[in-house]
């Protein structure tokens, strides 16, 4: 009983969160497993976990700060508004900013709806069977295929066979295929996490399956689906290998989706790996990171608004 007395303050701490009263019942099952008193274990573990989380955040912060410190001094209005010259040694990145938005945006516009609908179909409209398990399994396996293979596929299939050429649309379709497994899996996970009771209640009130899906299930699953989509936006923006052969390397403002466009990530890759210009490479990376930041913020803002509206 004294043990509980000691652990009370800790619970009081968390109590604000869940409103649970301090525990009064002993739990003998736990005592058998733990030699260290639970409250001490709690402190050690929580400390350790915070250390892990903080070190992760520190590493990530370091990366951003490093890029910003090295790159931001070279980011000038001209850099943002001009096209590159001399293979990237001079000039700026404005066509690449445009190209990145076009390719990644189009890819997510294509893959997002299709992926979510597939996930809905797999979870709500079919019974769990060998086939659905197989599809899920296949999607998991494809998530690990290196992007260069997707790039080759896109080159052979979209650019050559379908005659789309090396163009924004070829790149976007290739990227869409690449992020599809991620969107399907995360959406499925989110939809499956919606408690079955919600569905039963919805059916009980006489709604059709579609009403149940759109008004009950999707609404609860939205944050999870959003996570998947934000992750795929990130993956699309940061992709290089798959785009080299599909959306191409032309550093000029594209005039239609059938034009080739170089993305920021590809531009950074060329500048840094071929050793063309380090300051420009860092500046490109800084713009890239800022762009991703902005797109994510926008995505969050939209999601917040959307969630607020439907709730």
């Amino acid at each position: 009983m004294t043990r509980q007395a000691i652990s009370n303050p800790l619970h009081a701490d968390e109590g604000a969160d869940n409103g649970a009263p301090p525990p009064q019942i002993n739990a003998p099952r736990h005592r058998r497993q733990l030699r260290i008193p639970p409250d001490v274990a709690q402190r050690i573990v929580v400390g350790g976990l915070w250390a892990i989380a903080m070190s992760a955040v520190a590493v990530l912060l370091f990366i951003i700060v490093f890029i910003m410190v090295k790159g931001l001094p070279h980011v000038t209005p001209e850099f943002l508004l001009q096209a590159p010259a001399k293979g990237g040694r001079l000039g700026g990145v404005s066509p690449m900013i445009f190209g990145t938005i076009a390719v990644a945006g189009l890819a997510v516009l294509i893959a997002g709806p299709i992926g979510v609908i597939t996930a809905i179909y797999l979870t709500e409209y079919t019974r769990e069977s060998k086939l659905t398990a197989f599809i899920r399994f296949g999607a998991d396996c494809l998530a690990g295929i290196p992007s260069i293979i997707f790039g080759l596929f896109g080159f052979v299939f979209f650019a050559d066979t379908l005659g789309l050429g090396i163009s924004i649309i070829s790149g976007a379709l290739t990227l869409a295929l690449m992020v599809l497994p991620t969107i399907i899996r995360t959406s499925e996970e989110a939809i499956r996490a919606v408690p079955a009771a919600f569905r039963d209640v919805s059916f009980g009130l006489g709604s059709t399956r579609w009403q149940m899906v759109t008004r009950v299930v999707l609404r609860s699953a939205l944050p999870g689906i959003g996570t998947g989509i934000v992750l795929s936006i990130g993956r699309s923006i940061s992709e290089t290998a798959a785009l080299m052969l599909t959306s191409g390397m032309v550093a000029r403002h594209p005039s239609s989706v059938f034009d080739s466009a170089r993305t920021l990530a590809l531009h950074f890759f060329t500048l840094s790996r071929e050793g063309i210009s380090m300051p420009k490479a860092y500046a490109t990376a800084a713009v890239l990171v800022l762009a991703i930041l902005m797109i994510n913020l926008l995505a969050y803002w939209f999601m917040r608004r959307f969630i607020a509206r439907v709730r």
């Binding site: 929580v46 955040v57 990366i63 940061s238 840094s272 991703i292």
Partner: peptide
């Protein structure tokens, strides 16, 4: 589990943001 809600609303998006940093930048660093 162990984080006040305001901190979550900062930490989670910033970790997701890092998924968007290109692999070439990670490799480069």
């Amino acid at each position: 589990q162990f984080c006040p809600r305001w901190a979550v609303s900062i930490l989670k998006p910033s970790i997701e943001l890092l998924a968007g940093i290109p692999s070439v930048v990670y490799g480069f660093i």
